[in-house]
Simulated scan of single mutants.
Amino acid sequence: MGLTMLGNGLDFVINSIIHLKEAEQESCKSKEKEIKYSLLHLSSGIELILKSRLYREHWTYIFSDMNKANKENLKNGSFKSVESAILIDRLKILCGIDIDNDSKNAFENLRKLRNQMEHFTINDNFPAVEACINKALVEVSKFITNNYNDFTSPLTMSFKDDDDEFGLTQEEEKLIEELIKYIAKLKEHYDDAIKIATVKAQDEAVLHELLKCPSCKEKLLKCNYDDNMCHCFFCTYEEKGETVAEEYLNEIQGLSQYEIVKDGGKYPLYKCPDCDRNSMVNVGGKYVCFSCGMYYRENEVAFCDKCSVLYIKEDDNSELCHSCAKYKVVENK
């Protein structure tokens, strides 16, 4: 499949959530089986995510015996990796990551249940197993959130010996988006999904630039994420700026173009003075363009007395836009 260690870990966690979500359905006829696979996949996923953070520090750290670390064995996967108990110690000693007791206990309890399920059977009732899974999901979400910047930073000590290797691959980025989407479907973990999405947004944007998304209503929408495209870091909603501007007016500000025009009013969607697209909206005292991302405070723009277009004010205190002012000069000659 070509997935990385982190990619495999995220993929396992996503599959764990899918099984857990299925087990939560009242119509589920194989609840025990779904819970079993949720537990097994989550345990594997957490271990790989923790190991991948070690790997980002240095490839030798994921070997059980670092003195026997060998690049060839790493490439073909024929090596014994660090055990779970030592893994957390190495994260603290070698990476400066101090995993708190809540996380340690959650991961250890999950590991114990996994061993019981793999080799024997589980005597605990399934609500208790579900609770263990949910607690571990909270803690691995916290680990991803707290260490997100380390995952996205360039690799400088890769076993490939390439300086400034990119942090996250496109596949890893896609899997993190999927993780946010799936974990948000679990009632107990909506806030965990928001936290991961927020730290992801913070890595790629300035938080005060983010707006409420017309689709999910969370304040995680970035204008001009790509050329004339808006993107939500939470629900992955993505549309052209002109479309999002209209949907923002409808869904967030609760305005209907039909009702406003019918009553003789003017629909508050304006042409941007920078990119000329009809995608500028007044958002909390600022005129924001959903296409190019430019914004102006209310005192920095005005409406032309002649043509009503929105324009950027200059020092001449003119009440006309640049086109109308230019036309007036020509007309007066």
Rank of each mutant, 00 (worst) to 15 (best):
E242I: 11
Y225M: 01
M229I: 15
C232G: 07
E218V: 09
N228L: 12
L220P: 08
C216Y: 07
D203W: 02
K212C: 06
T236N: 05
E239M: 07
E204Y: 01
D227N: 13
E242T: 13
N224H: 12
L207I: 15
F234R: 02
N224M: 02
L210H: 04
H231R: 00
H208S: 14
E238D: 07
H231G: 00
E238G: 04
T243Q: 08
H231C: 00
L207S: 05
E209N: 15
H208E: 15
C213R: 06
V206E: 15
L211Y: 13
V206C: 10
E238Y: 03
F234S: 00
K212R: 15
L220G: 06
E239S: 12
E209K: 13
K222W: 08
V206Q: 14
F234W: 06
C230F: 06
D227H: 12
G241D: 06
N224F: 02
K219Q: 15
C235A: 02
L207K: 03
D226R: 13
N228I: 08
F233K: 00
E218S: 10
L210D: 04
L210W: 08
L210V: 03
C223A: 12
F233N: 01
L210E: 05
E242A: 09
E218L: 15
C232E: 07
K217W: 08
C230G: 05
L221V: 00
L220V: 08
L211C: 05
Y225W: 13
D227A: 10
K240D: 10
E238N: 11
T243Y: 08
L221Y: 03
